[in-house]
Amino acid sequence: MSIDFAYRVLLAVTLGVLTLLALACLIRCILGPRISDRVLAINLIGTLTVIMVAVTVLLLGEGYLADIALIYAMLSFLAVILLSKVYTGIYEEHKHEESLLAGQDGKKEADV
């Protein structure tokens, strides 16, 4: 058995397992009852994808794919930060509107 074949088998098996894990994370993302579960699953998919891109560096023997892994890591981090910020803001906005509406109702009742 040549060493190239051994490497290819190892990396192909690794890629296959990582793909299955990412699909499982996607299912969790769809099932997840709360928005934080979904963002968490997206974060995990990002981790697995970075490992996958690093595996393809060895599989194809191309050095520039390591840059893509680095950029993907940054994008994944940015996505999680942005989604958390946006959903926290949306929740607080809804709450603020609700409190405003409740305040109006209270005032009307007081006037009557």
Binding site: R34, I35, S36, V39, L40, N43, T47, V50, A54, A66, A69, L70, A73, M74, F77, V80, I81, S84, K85, Y87, T88, Y91, E92
Partner: peptide, 24 residues
């Protein structure tokens, strides 16, 4: 990539936990 991930993952977890604590 590993070094960057070690630096960024705690920050992402912190933001995610803040989202969970605030909205639940």
């Amino acid at each position: 990539v590993v070094v960057f991930w070690w630096l960024s993952a705690p920050v992402a977890s912190h933001m995610l936990c803040r989202l969970e604590i605030k909205t639940d």
